[in-house]
Simulated assay, not measured.
Amino acid sequence: TAFEYVLFDQSVALAEKHDRYCPLLTGIAGHQLALSESVLALWNEPGGMLAQLRDFPNERYATADEGLAAILRTQITGVDVLKKKLGTPMGRLNQGVAQPYQAEAWRSRQSIENLQASLQGAQAVWERVRSLVSDAALVKDIDQAYADVANQLAALPAPLMELVQAPQHSETLTTLYAALDNLENRQQTELARNLNIQIGFNANDGD
């Protein structure tokens, strides 16, 4: 957020002392790189998360089903976050009053691209899980649900902060939100039932 603010906010563009911005941006980028490398190292280290999702029992999961439940819970949380990133600027949490400045990356006008990237990440997890599903019709339905959301995102005609302020686009955004809701529900109910997995709460419950 700070990186985007420095690069795209008009008040910063008009400010003095631009020579101070490059070191700040370099520091932020270096910190993000260090965090990413740390997460990857923790994932791959002996006894790390990758091993805990592959070899059972372990100190975190007694069975493979427990590991799979954790993956699905994370998957569903990711789709729920997508709904919040769309629904909050739409005003779904504010009695229908649009909140355009609550859109992620509104300064850089990249909100929709961020939603697309998040959807691709969620779908990548689904691609690894789908071979475990015994119901071919359910697999087809979830594949179609991902395609529906992706196609609707790709068809949006303007940055999100502009769309949420234009009444003529309200129905389009509502349809997209419903498609995300359908995607989340299919995974949380039908997919979990097919895999005999108890999902329980996700990280957003209680927000």
Rank of each mutant, 00 (worst) to 15 (best):
A122L: 05
L72D: 00
R186Q: 12
H31W: 09
L183Q: 05
R186T: 01
T74V: 11
G87L: 08
Y61E: 13
L173M: 04
V133S: 06
E162S: 09
N151G: 07
L163M: 09
Q102C: 08
T26C: 15
Y61H: 11
L93N: 08
S170G: 13
G87N: 05
V39F: 13
V97Y: 10
G91K: 12
R130V: 08
M161G: 03
Y101D: 10
L191V: 00
A192K: 00
D80H: 13
G48H: 02
Q95A: 15
A178V: 01
A178H: 05
P159W: 02
F56W: 11
A29F: 09
G78C: 03
P157R: 04
I199M: 07
L176M: 14
D55T: 15
Q120L: 09
A192I: 00
L115E: 04
R73D: 05
G121D: 13
A166H: 01
S131Y: 02
H31D: 15
A179F: 01
N194H: 04
R128P: 14
S36C: 08
G27P: 10
K84D: 15
L132C: 06
E4Q: 06
A136V: 00
A166L: 05
T1R: 14
D9V: 01
V39M: 09
Q187Y: 01
Q123C: 13
P23A: 06
A70G: 03
N94M: 14
L53A: 01
V97Q: 15
D141C: 05
E104G: 10
S131C: 12
A51S: 13
A29E: 13
N58F: 01
T26S: 15
A166N: 12
A122S: 11
Q95W: 05
D141F: 01
G30Q: 11
K140Q: 11
P157G: 03
L115M: 10
K84H: 10
V149I: 00
M90R: 08
I76G: 08
P46E: 02
V6L: 08
A147G: 10
S134D: 07
L180C: 00
Q152T: 03
S111V: 10
L191H: 02
R20P: 11
D205P: 14
A158Y: 01
N185W: 00
